[in-house]
Design a protein around this nucleic acid. Structure first.
Lengths: 150, 150
DNA sequence: TTTCTCACTTACCTTTACGTAAACGGAAGG
DNA sequence: CCTTCCGTTTACGTAAAGGTAAGTGAGAAA
């Protein structure tokens, strides 16, 4: 149990850590996936012997990875993306580069935002049409009568 | 040249058609991809002999396919998605189902919208931080001084 | 007629993002 | 001591979405 590595934190109290299984449960991933993200260089958790030990920042990165996946990015894109989040140790030269990357991402995300919004209005239109159609037929719904507000 | 299939339209004038190469150029796809979408049942263009002939509706479907891809959906998801757009010949039973599908998609898209928006604000924050950092260093930008408005 | 250009099919290849199995290690508990 | 649980590595498998090559055909142009 007792060893010195328990208090490796400036703030004086031991930081909470996570096992791979915990994170897998929390984010709905498999161990394989999380390890794969590490293989691809998106994560680099500490080790206690051979066992992976994740800290608060690893967990945050994992959350970003998941969001990136939900948005349809590839692991490679997500990797670049992640580098934008830890600019803390960057040199001035790097920062210009990172800012360019950030702005490109922003532009892409705005396009995606527009796509999502347009698709949303189209689908709510379709929903409305179907609903009106069913209503005209008197064949009205048994399912919940939830509308489609933006 | 002259054959009867040129006037297959109710409206009296010949509808404009597209060759596969045209569509590929227009949407920035390869022939292979377009044919692949057909293999997967997302498109079913007419044929003139062995040659594919796309009409207005095929073209519209292709546009939807591209948008779906930009949003990160798989071809299978896009296929379901497409079926929502031609409810015209559907029976009442189908319509309930389609409406359910539409509502599921809507819910998913709203989540995606939230993800995109959050990522956007985070990245604009990062952009601002970098910009301020560079400004403090006097090492200010040579690149365009475009801001990051929402 | 020969040569382009565009299109077609068939078929194997590649990349991404994991799944899955085999075999092993260490700690905890009955 | 043996089992169980959690983790580890190595390595082959696989589904999705196309790339790429080989060989064919048909119409237009030189």
């Amino acid at each position: 149990m007792g060893d010195a590595a328990r208090l490796r934190d400036d703030s004086g109290y031991p930081e909470r850590t996570y096992a791979i299984g915990e994170l897998a449960d929390e984010f709905g991933l498999t161990l394989r996936s999380i390890r794969h993200y590490e293989d691809e260089g998106l994560l680099s958790p500490g080790r206690e012997g051979t066992v992976r030990v994740y800290d608060r920042r690893d967990r945050a990165r994992l959350a970003l990875i998941c969001r990136g996946k939900r948005l349809g990015f590839s692991l490679t894109e997500i990797k670049e993306f992640l580098s934008l989040y830890d600019t803390d140790g960057a040199q001035v030269g790097q920062m210009r580069y990172l800012r360019r990357m950030a702005r490109e991402r922003i532009a892409a995300l705005r396009r995606q935002l527009a796509d999502v919004q347009q698709t949303l209005t189209e689908l709510t239109d379709i929903d409305d049409q179907i609903t009106r159609h069913l209503r005209r037929q008197g064949a009205d719904d048994a399912t919940n009568e939830e509308g489609s507000r933006s």
